[in-house]
Design a protein around this nucleic acid. Sequence first.
DNA 1: TGTCATTGGAAACAATTGTTTGAATATGCC
DNA 2: GGCATATTCAAACAATTGTTTCCAATGACA
Lengths: 222, 222
Amino acid sequence: MAQQPDTVTRILDTAEVLFAERGFAETSLRNITSKAKVNLAAVNYHFGSKKALIQAVFARYLDPFTVRFHASLDELEADYAGRVIPLEALLETMARSVLEVPAERNSLKVFMRLLGLAYSQAQGHLRRYIQEEYGSVFTRFTELVRLATPELPDAERFWRLHFMLGTVIFTLSGLDALRDIAEKDYGEHVSVRDLVRRLRPVVVAAMNAPLPDPSPVRREAS
Amino acid sequence: MAQQPDTVTRILDTAEVLFAERGFAETSLRNITSKAKVNLAAVNYHFGSKKALIQAVFARYLDPFTVRFHASLDELEADYAGRVIPLEALLETMARSVLEVPAERNSLKVFMRLLGLAYSQAQGHLRRYIQEEYGSVFTRFTELVRLATPELPDAERFWRLHFMLGTVIFTLSGLDALRDIAEKDYGEHVSVRDLVRRLRPVVVAAMNAPLPDPSPVRREAS
DNA sequence: TGTCATTGGAAACAATTGTTTGAATATGCC
DNA sequence: GGCATATTCAAACAATTGTTTCCAATGACA
């Protein structure tokens, strides 16, 4: 019989699933500890508080992600040896990095749900934590995107990147619900890789869309 | 001195703001009633339960929205008199309907935040309620989109519509945070209308993106 | 004016929350 | 073995939650 993982791991494994399913506020420590078969006090003993547990759940995904993503960007920059990295390659690399990390634990869905929650749930401490802890890798990425899309005004690129962030997080974090509808309506089962395949041309087209009409000039300015 | 709106209205006005700011579970009835200056029991008296209050908050936005959106689609169909309505016109109409409704209460932000929460928060009852109560108008809209984009496979259109739903909800519901960043980085203040202007070409380009590569064939199928 | 249904309000309810305590147990090290 | 440290455990804690109860105030209608 396989040995049970230690208490800390059991808590994290259970917590991430419950958090992803129902959100942070809706998941009680008793929920977690009873399902993980550990004592209630174990959470506060090992993590200190519920907040700290939430951050630890994120760290277990984001730490390996940032390491890999940085490494992949290093490779990419080496490959292109100073030349501009095309947008498609950047997006491809990001997608690969996102897909790789949770593959070890077979829980991309959880990963994406957590990202979605980090944005939508109140939990101000979480956004701050993520920004401070993992902001640098995103800064690096957006700078590379800037070089790849020199014709885009800075503000326009900023917004389009966030548009696409919304697309991806929204879709993948609500995947279960959407998959149910899609399966009912079109019969076909949709895998995550399938979805990423469908996302690629959409994201590229969105980033390369023509510029919007200039904002209308105020009346008083003639 | 202007007469205070009645209890029911005060509760709804306060609840929608607090819900939008912090989510449903994180907003207690005491939070709402104290800020609205009504008695705690008033919520259960007038609405029956917290769940019912949440649904009532949504109904106050979605009821007028569906009415207007149906009406706008009626006009549009009349204008085109049986001919196919182009995608741009459909998107334009939808955007206009969304913008019109909360303009009365000057709270598009709240409307969008609520929509975002409806998707991301657990609250299974909410999704079910919205689907049952307001599903028909979306069915009508997607059917018109189908006619406007005959070259798209059904599944592909389904997914792209949800991609764009994600873009819009994610962007507009996280608007405050994003606006802060954008203003800090680019100095310019961004209005909602500005954002809609920027969204238009992106959404159109995304819907018209080339089809993805066909999904790779499984090994055993030669 | 008196009656009755509606609304407002203070208090209490039972349940659940995150956290802490202090003793019991296990573990590692000399 | 024996000590010290680390972990587990049951119990209790104080705070907060949604909901209910019971009574007072209100206002419409006869």
